[in-house]
């Protein structure tokens, strides 16, 4: 375990540790999620303070974009998962005539 860690340290790029080193921190995920949640909350609050102008009425409903973004994103994921159920095929479905299986062979 220790060896492994050492090896990782060695291969890590110095620029990498400056830019993204903090990601390796134990709480990094929590920090990110926390920041995101807080900023979302703030943005939502702004809507009640500042009156937005838009071309359509619906744009002026407070929190419209927030709700729309959240729901639509979920819809996309849902739709994509459903779609995958229908269209998923093995990687070598098209045989040697498509690059996907090509890469598989390269890997081997």
């Amino acid at each position: 375990m220790n060896d492994n860690n050492k090896k990782l340290k060695e291969t890590t790029n110095p620029v990498g540790s400056i830019l993204f080193g903090w990601l390796d921190h134990r709480h990094s995920t929590r920090i990110i999620i926390g920041t995101l949640s807080v900023s979302c909350f703030v943005l939502l609050l702004v809507d009640f303070v500042y009156h937005r102008h838009g071309h359509f009425m619906i744009e002026e409903v407070p929190g419209f974009f927030a709700l729309y973004g959240f729901l639509m994103f979920s819809l996309i994921i849902l739709g994509a998962t459903t779609l995958r159920y229908f269209v998923k095929r093995r990687e070598d479905y098209y045989g040697t005539k498509a690059v996907d299986s090509d890469m598989t062979e390269n890997k081997k």
Binding site: L36, S39, C40, L43, L44, V46, D47, Y50, R52, G54, E59, G63, F64, F65, A66, L67, Y68, G69, F70, M72, F73
Partner: peptide, 10 residues
Amino acid sequence: ISQLQLLCFA
């Protein structure tokens, strides 16, 4: 703001 809302909530 609207753009940020959309993106952040997504």
